[in-house]
Write a protein that binds this DNA or RNA. Structure first.
Lengths: 349, 349
DNA sequence: GAGGTCATTGTGAGCGCTAACAATTCCTGC
DNA sequence: GCAGGAATTGTTAGCGCTCACAATGACCTC
């Protein structure tokens, strides 16, 4: 049944076998209505027989459409970016697009620019940039590029079209939860200075405290890693007994480090110090103790940003706003409330 | 300086502006040696001025090379697949290839086949399949496909070219470590039945015990999730005092669940029960207690598999074996040895 | 200064497809 | 049995690039 051609069969080969013109083959493949059933069947049989597949390059050249989207991401082994990436690809594929990814170790103006060049050379029709660093977002607005770009993870400060979880709101939920539980004040271990999401979380935390008439303590800084959380946790442990009873940590991994440091310092969680994280990574339910945290709907971010990008590509007026905000959700566990439910009974992450 | 053409400029446009033929422009772009310096400079200026970029589709059509690789992956939010994906993309980009990814929720014959079709329609020259389930690997060998495929994460049972961490060896390291520490026997919480890597780890564990003259206990089964580890851990806790002093868990996430279950049952780690995990995810150093585990060099897997795939694509005789095995490494922490080093002092993950 | 060589540049023909238009066939109704 | 129109099919010209080869010219040798 299969030939063993040195070259894969072309449309002309199929046409010859079916006894029609190549254009008729193209019509069959394109589901054009005006093809006689008998002809269509004959063509389809020929296609089957030769194992024919359209050459995507030729098609792209003739239509000027590659049906490929690009994604630039960094830190893709972290839960957040990895989840976003997954959601993006799934959403794009549902629309018939292929996704090409460039993952960089560190997002800078140079790496971002190189990544866009690489994707551009690959013929992408548009790009999603998962660009949480402020510097990168700004660079994005400047760079000359022949296709639309949608930013993701840029927090509130985006000059380009974007889709984001509302980090400010997430921080308010976390901080408000701790205040409502009776804590007089809430400390904060923040993410890196340059990350807009970190800044948004700081702002949400600060505003919530100030609205409650509390002077916010100086926030600590980490780099998202458990190790930086551990170091900050050692420092925080020194403040226990001097007004520190609750900490809002800007992500779950750092919270894990904080928990370990507190434990090693003989500080009990949540009895002595309550801890809230951010992200709801799959592990956080099993930390010691299980972690109260803020869940982000990465899947929604992926779908909304792809929809927005496609609107931009196809030249449609976007069906919604070009700066999309998605609501996060608080997940309460034992790190703030000792009688929280056992594993497997809470809604799934 | 920039035109604002409805169409992006073509090679012919650049040629006209530079006063040369399109072929000379092509030569400049292709770094062909036989171009006069003066001409080259003039062409380059024209390219610059027009912001010209080669059309990748036209290029691909003429050269029959898309310089695009495909990757099929599942469970990409897990540390292992995400790390592999990252390494693959980085290695491919270093060779000038673009990577298109398809991430599926569940790897079955159908989803794998659809994924390959989608990538094929995207014109990929070869595919890396991260296919840890046995059924998927077998399907891979059957499917008709017009490009080479390299499997990754298939453990020892691969009929197609592959690159893998030696899971059998990793399990031997873990089990041997526990025996050497004086444990009489080692229990095992295995991964899902259908995963070859899980089977390889079971085999390594079993063989090590048998060589030491110990009858292996019945292994438990989990699904890689912390929750399944937690449930297994509850069961394991019931065997403490009846010969259970050491557990080898097939991944770190399940180990996290086991640790929680043991803790809740009043079982101390490592004094009552020692625990070893697998993967060395970034969090495991901060578990309670920090987890002894087996580290896999995903970066090496990525590089080796890309090198192999490119050999296959270019029709070269592969420079090495077509079934590549990479050595894992044991990382000892407090879950097996209570005086292990504090965070930040061990070699980085 | 004829002939040869090399470096440099240009020309023409595809690559495999789709879009636009032209040609043919098949029905209608009268 | 034939005009008129719709349905169906074919023809031609690109899309923008690279490859193979032809043409040009500079330079050298004897």
């Amino acid at each position: 049944m299969t030939h063993s051609p040195l070259r894969p069969p072309t449309m002309a080969d199929v046409a010859r076998l079916a006894g029609v013109s190549h254009q008729t083959v193209s019509r069959v493949l394109g589901d054009h209505p005006n093809v006689r059933d008998e002809t269509r069947a004959r063509v389809q049989r020929a296609i089957e027989e030769m194992g024919y597949r359209r050459n995507s390059s030729a098609r792209a050249l003739a239509t000027r459409r590659t049906r490929t989207l690009g994604v630039v991401a960094s830190n893709t082994t972290l839960y957040g970016p990895a989840s976003t990436l997954f959601a993006l690809e799934e959403a794009a594929r549902a629309e018939g697009y292929l996704v090409s990814t460039v993952s960089v170790r560190k997002l800078t103006v140079e790496t971002l620019s190189e990544a866009l060049d690489h994707l551009s050379d690959g013929g992408v029709e548009g790009v999603i940039a998962i660009a949480p660093q402020r510097s990168a977002v700004e660079a994005l607005a400047e760079l000359r590029r022949p296709f639309p770009v949608v930013a993701v993870g840029t927090g509130s400060a985006s000059t380009v079209p974007s889709a984001n979880v509302d980090q400010y709101l997430g921080a308010r939920l976390a901080t408000g939860h701790l205040l409502a539980a009776g804590h007089r004040t809430v400390w904060h271990l923040a993410g890196p200075e340059d990350w807009q999401e970190a800044a948004d979380r700081v702002a949400g935390w600060r505003d919530t405290l100030e609205e409650a008439g509390v002077e916010p303590p100086m926030p600590l800084r980490g780099d998202w890693s458990p190790l930086s959380g551990y170091r900050a946790g050692q420092e925080l442990a020194g403040w226990v007994g001097r007004g520190l009873t609750a900490v809002f940590v800007a992500n779950d991994q750092m919270a894990l480090g904080v928990l370990r440091a507190l434990r090693e310092a003989g500080v009990r969680t949540p009895q002595d110090v309550a801890v809230v994280g951010y992200d709801d990574i799959p592990e956080s339910e099993f930390f010691a103790p299980p972690l109260t945290t803020v869940r982000q709907d990465f899947s929604a971010v992926g779908q909304r940003s792809i929809a927005l990008l496609l609107d931009l590509i196809e030249g449609r007026t976007p069906s919604g706003p070009t700066r999309i905000a998605i609501e996060p959700q608080l997940v309460v566990r034992a790190s703030t409330y000792p009688y929280a439910s056992p594993p497997g009974t809470a809604p799934p992450g």
